[in-house]
Design a protein around this nucleic acid. Sequence first.
DNA 1: GCCCGGTTTTGCGCTATCGCAAACTGCAAG
DNA 2: CTTGCAGTTTGCGATAGCGCAAAACCGGGC
Lengths: 236, 236
Amino acid sequence: MAKVDTSLVAHLPLFTGVKPEDLEEILREARSARYPKNTAIFEQGADAQSFFLLLHGHVRAAKTTPTGEQIVVRYVAPGETFGLAMAIGAARYPATAMAVDDSVVLIWPNSAWPRLIERFPSLAANTLQTVGARLQESHTRILEMSTQQVEQRVAHVLLRLAKQSGKKSDHGIEIDFPISRQDIAQMTGTTLHTVSRILSGWESQGLVESGRQRIILRDPHRIVVLAERTADSGPA
Amino acid sequence: MAKVDTSLVAHLPLFTGVKPEDLEEILREARSARYPKNTAIFEQGADAQSFFLLLHGHVRAAKTTPTGEQIVVRYVAPGETFGLAMAIGAARYPATAMAVDDSVVLIWPNSAWPRLIERFPSLAANTLQTVGARLQESHTRILEMSTQQVEQRVAHVLLRLAKQSGKKSDHGIEIDFPISRQDIAQMTGTTLHTVSRILSGWESQGLVESGRQRIILRDPHRIVVLAERTADSGPA
DNA sequence: GCCCGGTTTTGCGCTATCGCAAACTGCAAG
DNA sequence: CTTGCAGTTTGCGATAGCGCAAAACCGGGC
């Protein structure tokens, strides 16, 4: 197992307030692994045995109902942790994690967690902050689902993805991992059909350019306007 | 300021792993306050200066959009913390907290938080667990909003409220704080009209008994069935 | 270069739910 | 007891978005 260079991860929010020599000790407890595109990292309901830090790639966390419907909880970007079941007191993973691109992760055994937070309390504090931030995002998402219509929600999601994982390309921002209409539907509480219609509409207005699992925001500013538009404040 | 009896709070999840003498020290930093029914404890967007532990009563946390729509984030039951902005790294309260019943709370100044978690790391760990639990509940709520129809969502919410704050009465479980149709609408992402229609329907089937800000589940079991029913698995 | 399967597009009817409006009700204050 | 008002009920028309079905499309694998 290759040793992880501390300089690659030292600046991450998770490690703020951790001394370099401590960081090294923390990293010694982890191993790294590579997951090819479209492989599962863990499954919803499985015994939680590890927690993860994404180094490269992108991971989709999705939750499935007993009847098979899915929602995308979030996309994990490099530098973010995921699978923190142990930290939040869950014995099993509440969602499925899947690499949507070739991905590299650091993996700590759950058994290391209690020891780590005892020796390095900043870890607990930092984790609390990131989990808190996710909680707020969830609340925002609930608020949006309750008060906005589908088009605005899709606009918000695309803007959020662009901010989190946008790659500036010629005349636009491209979401730099493969994402389908279906995925967006599962992030906004709608169907892939409706998402497709909306994107088609936007494409014909030059707002976006999109194709197979690929979306480029050509005119982010006008999309922001769309996102913020109230139901009744539309055009003539 | 009256001194708080440690025995009243020692068993709370927040304080698991805290030694009795430490608990006393923690409580010394708090003051207690009483909020009459329908008074605000803090407002969304205000500078977060304190965090809270509810001792008696019930508190509604609600989030408002720029355009005035509201959702109920959650109802706080006695023994639960709220207003943890500082802990999760927010400078302002992300929601408004309102006493829905005469309520008594413990209040710590935010400035005490860093010191407390340094001296008593279990506090951070415990808080992480409760925030994590709330995050999972939020995800469940998003899942429900995405995949279920309104009637099922209302059923789920009532069952959740009954479990959290249900008082067994003659032949049923009564939600033991005032809650309006509007509140339920704001918890389920619908309108008070639709909630009213649903409850009327249930009432005529003997599932619930309800009135002005008051709901009694007469037949929880059948409500569970409703909650779990798939869109197409209905009766003839 | 061709074929296959997953993805996307689009049409069309349907319906759950909204939105508005109006009437009703019961608690609480005076 | 009366009155006022917040909360609730109910009717009715409007519609956003779903669900199903079919066709078109695209990219990668062989």
